[in-house]
Simulated scan of single mutants.
Amino acid sequence: MDVFDGLPDPIVVDILDKVGDVKTLLRCSSLSKRFYSLVPQSESLTLRLDQVVTTESPPDSPVSNFFKSVCKPFHGLFSLFSKPAKPIPATNLSPVIPSKLLSRFDRIKNLDVELPGEDAKPEKGAGIKWKAEFGKTLKTCVVVAFRSASTVSSPGVESDAEFVTGLKTRVEWTINALMAASTRHHLMSRVVKEHKEMESLVMHERGGEGTVVMKSEGLREFRKTEAARDQELEERVEKKQRSVVPSVRMSMRHAPSLKLKSGICLESATLVIVRPSEEYSDVGDDELATEAFAGSCMYGEAVVALLKRNKNTLDMNSF
């Protein structure tokens, strides 16, 4: 006899959970009637999306267009930001695509989505990592970025002109990260609505640049909000390419030159913690930032060092 056929169904489902990859499991479902019936019971899945269509922003980039109106505390600096920024490539996948790929699965509890895009990619030599948590809308976003990394340290003092120029870059990095995060949130909106047993959703890029997280509480909040929408509003939302980012407050820490214990020196190192302006509180910011990059040695070390720096606060309107 086939020993595998002697395994109880729960053990086979557990094995399929360890496989995880959606495309592999869908191939497995064609092997036999038994696999066809058991594959949909998998609870922990990994979905790798390969199809990406990039679109360019119109000549007046969103970053430069609304920068003047959203950063309230820096009215005197606005004239520096009139030049349109470089168009931002954006992942432009319909929410229908992941929904169709997952339509065969009935009991998804944990879903990990891997994307190939790099929406918030900064200029050459720079590095950026961000992590955002969503419910019905943005809850938090932590961004760590630097202009360059080397083993040679430079003077840690910058002129007023350098500070202003750097400020534009730092806010631009943050806006790009928020736009990338809201695009991912919208991409999985239909999946979240259709799979009501889901308890954890993580979306990340293949290069490890950005991560979007929806925990059980955020997933419930999103479904409750979506259920309250009327049909006309829902159809209007489906036509958008990303979720709306609410009015937010950005807590920003910056170091012109930051030397890490590992010997690496980061130029123009920045830590930004973003929360919605409504009922804003910076309580727990330190824990939020350190937890976001706990598994990344260089970025995690940079967060610990930057948390000791003075912070500046900026308000940004919804977009």
Rank of each mutant, 00 (worst) to 15 (best):
F4K: 05
D5E: 15
V19C: 06
R27H: 08
C28H: 08
S29Q: 09
S29N: 01
S30H: 15
S37E: 14
S42Q: 03
S44A: 11
L47N: 03
V52G: 00
V53Y: 07
S57R: 12
P59V: 15
S64T: 08
F67P: 00
S69P: 00
H75D: 09
G76N: 14
G76P: 00
I88D: 08
I108V: 15
K109S: 10
N110D: 14
P116C: 07
G125I: 11
F134D: 06
F134N: 06
K136R: 15
F146I: 00
R147W: 11
P155L: 07
G156C: 04
V164Q: 12
T169E: 14
V171F: 13
T174E: 11
A181E: 02
M188K: 00
R190P: 00
S200R: 10
E205V: 04
G208L: 06
V212A: 07
G218H: 06
R220T: 05
F222N: 02
F222K: 03
E226C: 12
R236M: 04
S243Y: 02
S243V: 04
S247G: 13
V248I: 15
S251Q: 12
H254T: 06
A255V: 04
S257P: 01
K259W: 00
K259I: 05
I264H: 10
E267T: 06
I273N: 01
R275C: 04
R275W: 03
P276V: 02
E278Q: 12
E278C: 07
G284N: 03
D285G: 03
D285S: 13
E287L: 08
L288S: 07
F293N: 01
C297L: 15
L306S: 08
L307A: 06
K308S: 14
R309Y: 09
T313R: 07
F319T: 01
